[in-house]
Design a protein around this nucleic acid. Structure first.
Lengths: 111, 111
DNA sequence: TTTATACATCAATATTCATTGATTGATCAA
DNA sequence: TTGATCAATCAATGAATATTGATGTATAAA
C-alpha cells in the first residue's frame, strides 16, 4: 500500500512506459506535439502545416493517442487533437525518479 | 541570442532528442537504467542480474551510451556503467517544456 | 606462456515500424 | 440524392531494430 493514491514511477507498468517513450521517439511526432503546445488543432490544419500525406499524420496521431499523449475531440467533420498534459507530467515524474536516485555507489562487487 | 547559455528544449536538435527517447523506449534499457539508480555496475553484474546473454546487454548499453544516458568507466578487465544525470535532466526539461505551454487554445481555424 | 574472464563486435535472422496509395465511412453542402 | 471533404484504416513495401551465437581483443591469473 502507498501513502497516497499516486501511481509512482516505480510502480507504473513497464509496458505503458515503453509505449510513452516510443511515441516520443520520432521526429514527426515530436513536431506534432510541439505544434499542439499552442492549443488544439484539427488534422487538416496539421496536414497543411506539415505538407505531408494525411494518412501519414493519421498514423502518427494514433501512436500519440494510444500512448495517451494526446486526446481527440470530434466535432462535425473535423477531429481536434490536443496535448494531454497529465501524460506529460507522468513522463516528467518518471524521468525525475530515475535522475533523483540515492546513488549509493555500491562497493562494486567483483564478478 | 539567449539570455543565458542554456540549451533550451526549443533549441536542442530534434535528432538528438529522438535518440534520447528511442533509447528510453525499450523494456530492457529501462530496467538497466533502474538498476543503475543504485550506483555504477559492471556488465558482468548486470548480466547476472538480468539472466540474459552478454552480447544482448552489451548492445543495449551501447544504445544508452550513444544517447548519452549512461557513461562507462573501464577499470582493468571490467567496465562500469553509471547513469548520466545531466542527460536525464535534459529529458526532464524537454518534457516540462512541452507540458508547460501557454495553450492559447487558438480560435480553431477552419480548413 | 597458457588459460580463463570480461566485454565488444560481427553476421545472420527475426521482428517491428514507417511510408505510400487506395479504400471506406461519416458529415455536410448543393 | 449527389458530390465533396475530413479522417481512419488497410495492404504492400521498405527501413530500422532486436536477438542469437560466434569471434576477437584485452586483461589478469595460473
Amino acid at each position: 500500500m502507498y501513502k497516497n493514491g499516486m501511481t509512482t514511477a516505480a510502480t507504473r507498468s513497464l509496458g505503458k512506459t515503453v509505449r510513452l517513450f516510443h511515441a516520443l521517439s520520432d521526429e514527426t511526432r515530436l513536431r506534432l506535439l510541439e505544434q499542439l503546445r499552442d492549443g488544439e488543432q484539427c488534422v487538416c490544419e496539421l496536414t497543411d502545416t506539415f505538407k505531408t500525406g494525411q494518412s501519414r499524420l493519421s498514423f502518427h496521431l494514433r501512436v500519440l493517442k494510444d500512448a495517451g499523449l494526446v486526446t481527440d475531440r470530434p466535432e462535425g467533420r473535423w477531429i481536434y487533437y490536443s496535448l494531454n498534459r497529465d501524460a506529460l507530467r507522468e513522463v516528467e515524474d518518471l524521468v525525475a525518479w530515475l535522475k533523483d536516485s540515492s546513488s549509493r555507489n555500491m562497493p562494486a562487487r567483483r564478478c
